[in-house]
Design a protein around this nucleic acid. Structure first.
Lengths: 187, 187
DNA sequence: ACTTTCTTTTGACAATTGTCAAAAAAGGAA
DNA sequence: TTCCTTTTTTGACAATTGTCAAAAGAAAGT
């Protein structure tokens, strides 16, 4: 749980009371490779902090699995659309490596928000940082070639190649696996 | 200012005290077509609510203007990266039609957050809704063809064609103006 | 009306990327 | 090891999209 505390502190320091309340509300989740945290059609009621392992979010489009994010150590994980809107999502969250997470339900989190303004601020700030990341990714997707997107990924997350199959990375980059394979062979 | 109040209420109702404090902190901004709200290289210190008019955010890439969002009535407008990170951004915000806005500085907003938990919750919720929109846009960009993206835009915002030059829409969709023109002629 | 400027369309061609199919390589399990 | 499965690479070809250049059309100002 220290990992989470350290991670949180980098975003926004919270009072010891808020941390105490938060840590009481957290559940430890150990989940093995290839299992699913979320399936399409269900409402994702929990927010997770990933301490160890990795996961991916994907959905099915015309019979193909389309990966649109990966989660690694120190990331917050949820089916964002579903968690926020309280509606069923189209997203599947699959565990790619045996993972350790800390989870909190939406209800518990909102109760904590009422009691600790601190925590709501923390979440606001984290949301904002994740928004900025998403914005950067959109810009790359909109205005860069497949090769540039790949090279950018290699710079920011070189470890990803060692942990994720190529086909899933290609999907994440918005290109076919064959194209990614060819890009790599030409570098 | 009623427009803003109604808009806010749809996201999260706030106490009358919070609204009173907020409305006192707002400045009315009238800004004419073709002027700039934000220029690249500057820190954007303000968040705006657009009551009337429209704007676009763009940046320069290899001598080309790359449009990555449009703002219309009832949208919140800022150079998000710069506003959040307090750093200079690469974004230009240009006024496309004579516009009326309500603006608040970052400092004033954060002071209001300290005094009114309400308002911070409101902003958290608005952020989350904007995050979801951005996520949808990323998904479209990642996994849909140019034609599909255009058709989707026509469904969700048909008015955009009447108000925005084609070249800017093409840029927003991540395609060349010529391609968009051809897509339209083939429908 | 007539310019002037900005916007949109069209043509020709090149570059990028996708699809399908098969082969090669890598990784796991017995 | 050998077998089996999954992952990655390669080839051939098609589809999509981009680029450059020019023409046509629309809008704004005089």
């Amino acid at each position: 749980m220290n990992t989470l505390y350290n991670c949180i502190s980098q975003y926004h320091p919270i009072s010891s009371g808020a941390w105490e309340a938060l840590s009481k509300a957290l559940t430890r989740v150990e989940i093995p490779r290839n299992s699913f945290l979320v399936r399409e059609g269900m409402i994702c009621n929990k927010l997770y902090f990933l301490e160890r392992g990795c996961l991916r979010g994907y959905y099915n489009l015309d019979g193909k699995e389309v990966t649109y994010w990966f989660g690694f150590e120190n990331n917050f994980i949820t089916s964002f659309y579903s968690f926020i809107s309280r509606k069923p999502g189209i997203e599947n969250i699959q565990v790619l490596e045996d993972s350790t997470m800390w989870g909190i339900s939406s209800e518990a989190l909102h109760q904590l928000f009422d009691q600790h303004h601190d925590l709501e601020r923390l979440v606001r700030i984290i949301n904002e940082q994740y928004y900025i990341r998403l914005e950067e990714r959109l810009m790359a997707m909109q205005f860069k070639t497949a090769r540039e997107r790949y090279e950018q990924l290699m710079e920011t997350s070189p470890h990803i190649l060692q942990r994720i199959p190529l086909g899933q990375i290609a999907s994440y980059l918005g290109i076919s696996q064959e194209t990614l394979s060819r890009i790599r062979s030409q570098v």
